[in-house]
Design a protein around this nucleic acid. Structure first.
Lengths: 174, 174
DNA sequence: GTTCACATGTAACAGGTTACATGATTGG
DNA sequence: CCAATCATGTAACCTGTTACATGTGAAC
């Protein structure tokens, strides 16, 4: 999932600036499984443009900073389709939170509880975001992906609600 | 979650070789949220040893290739505890599979169904691994982490079972 | 006899992040 | 006026991966 493909993917939903792309990738409802920073996006966009996979339109709006609006070319769409048929790289999930939870004996229970609480709040916030995105969405594929995220987030939150309790027998996944 | 902390964390469960650590990180039940390759582990181990955070014991066993068994020092345990109290870096989830699912309109339905099937099989395999690890585990913290993984994997599998169906109304997370 | 699991390491390379550099407009 | 948001870009750096390089014993 390199940044180039990511840019093509987002542009397949319509034209956008580098700023837009970064925002959708890092803050939007899709951010639960994609990622990209400015430092990666701008060079990628430039490379894609030089390869003829996207088109650039300079939008100089009086007042506001002028911007470069990119959109997919036919070649770009072809490249995207090809990328989608490439063998998938395995999904990645890395969690420092779980690493700390694994070594919970080394930290004060209070601190651990605080971390768990924060994590739950984070999950709930994302869940809310996913839900409202689902409400406002027509694309079936998008709905599927959003619903997947919702299902997984709900499960994580449910688990933490139960496992938060001090009763150890609750932890055992029975 | 850099490799050094990861090594300390695994060593906190008992002595191990670089080979062991990589195996647990990349193939064990914990691999659902941690990751490390040889090329990262060996240099990290060497650095940790030079910093006095771990001890090295050369085990030259007649016949089998000799190996270096590492174990935490007191300083290492202290360093681990300190690392665990550092502010958490956000969890990372990246999924190329979901990116393709998002753009499902660009691929043949057959191909997409195949990918979904493979993903489900993968999730089920991991789930099995997590379950048997839970059965064989006494540490409460470990049980918690394993159970978390089980809960999330179960939810993902459940979702895919429902959403696999051709009926679109099933997709909408209602 | 050949493949698999054990076992350690290095070097080149890729990929992306962080911090820096700049600047306008809007809203409080 | 000050902060936040919009907007683009570069360069140094870090971290880790991939591929290479090597070797043994066990099991089939």
């Amino acid at each position: 999932m390199n940044v180039k493909t990511l840019c093509l993917a987002i542009l397949s939903f319509g034209e956008a600036t580098g700023y837009d792309i970064r925002k959708r990738a890092a803050e939007g409802p899709l951010s639960y499984f994609i990622e990209a920073s400015f430092g990666a996006i701008y060079p990628a966009l430039d490379r894609l443009w030089r390869e003829g996979l996207i088109e650039k339109r300079r939008e100089a709006r009086p007042g506001r900073p002028s911007r470069k609006v990119y959109s997919l070319t036919e070649a770009g769409e072809k490249a995207l389709v090809e990328a989608l048929h490439q063998p998938l790289t395995p999904d990645v999930f890395k969690s420092e939170f779980l690493l700390v939870a694994l070594l919970a004996d080394y930290v004060e229970p209070k601190h651990m509880a605080q971390l768990a609480h924060a994590k739950r709040a984070e999950l709930e916030q994302r869940l809310e975001q996913l839900r409202s995105a689902l409400d406002a969405c027509e694309s079936e594929a998008m709905r599927w992906v959003l619903s997947y995220g919702i299902a997984v987030h709900e499960a994580a939150i449910r688990f933490m609600q139960v496992a938060d309790r001090p009763d150890p027998s609750r932890h055992c996944g029975a």
